[in-house]
Amino acid sequence: MISVEDRLEIEAFLFKEARLADESRYSEWEALVDDDMHYWVPLRESQDPDSDQVSLLNDNRTRLATRIRQLNTGVRHAQLPPSRMRRSIANIEIEELGADEYAVGANVVLYEFRRQATKELEVWPARVEYKLRRKDGELKMFRKHIFLLNSEGSVRGLSFII
């Protein structure tokens, strides 16, 4: 059992992470990420990230830095202008992994208004699994795995931070 204080701190971190992603504040979002970050959107729930199976996105820290750099160029058409987004995080379950490390699971629904092209509202329901650690007194994220409900079906452009 984790303490109420730890739970509140972790929830506050998740809500901030969600808000920075919603508002396309790319560099501020990246500042929440640790050096060994794995950011992953697989095709299947049972997928092994190290297998030969293709993912929608499978970023180590270096590739994630490239992704943020591309979004920050200001000429990434896919997010020009950035999608308007709001996401809700629910059913948060937290497990302590050891010294100042936590595994968090949650259900997330993201609403996206695609104003850069078709001006439609897209809904992205997902299971999200995070791993966080306390480092130099503050929480950092070193894993975010997003299991989209429709990942094996047809998927629209997903160029924002999910």
């Binding site: 929608l56 896919a78 160029s159």
Partner: peptide
Amino acid sequence: GPTAFLLADDCVIAE
């Protein structure tokens, strides 16, 4: 694919 450095941009231009 949907998240890619290249095709995500082609997608928006095509739409």
